[in-house]
């Protein structure tokens, strides 16, 4: 699978959440069994589904209340097609996206346990 070089963000689904990563940060994308392996920042990310690429996103900063209850440090949050998503920082990738974490140890949301009313982008 070719690496998206266009500007914008690669959207993917993982552990029931929607995640976005800047296309420029994506180094590689390959099938990995039933899912995908995305290489970014020298690290391998796991994705259950690749939702597509969007040219532009309005990224909001992460509110203190959010940081208070979530230890990850994403680049921001955004909304695409009515669905909120987390834009990750390639330098500080959330643990849930890393391939090294087995699916069974994914915290809070099991694989495929998507949030209620989740919409496709």
């Amino acid at each position: 699978m070719s690496v998206p070089h266009a500007p914008g963000f690669l959207l993917m689904r993982r552990a029931g959440g929607v995640w976005g990563i800047a296309n420029g940060a994506v180094e590689g994308l390959a099938r990995d069994g039933a899912g995908y392996r995305v290489t970014a920042g020298g690290q391998a990310l796991a994705a259950d589904e690749i939702l597509g690429v969007v040219a532009d996103l309005r990224i909001y900063p992460v509110a203190p209340a959010l940081r208070r209850f979530w230890s990850e440090e994403p680049a921001g949050v955004a909304v695409h097609a009515g669905v909120p998503l987390v834009v990750v920082d390639p330098r500080r990738l959330p643990a849930v996206l890393l391939c090294e974490i087995p699916r069974c140890e994914i915290p809070r949301c099991a694989a495929g346990e998507a949030g209620a009313g989740e919409d496709e982008p």
Partner: peptide
């Protein structure tokens, strides 16, 4: 609102929702 959970978040944080076209953390 429809809430999208954030893996690894504390129990008080239900997740993210969309409100007025913006992301909204929901507790």
């Amino acid at each position: 609102l429809t809430v999208h959970p954030l893996p690894g978040a504390a129990g008080e944080l239900e997740g993210l929702a969309e409100f007025g076209g913006e992301p909204l953390p929901v507790l």
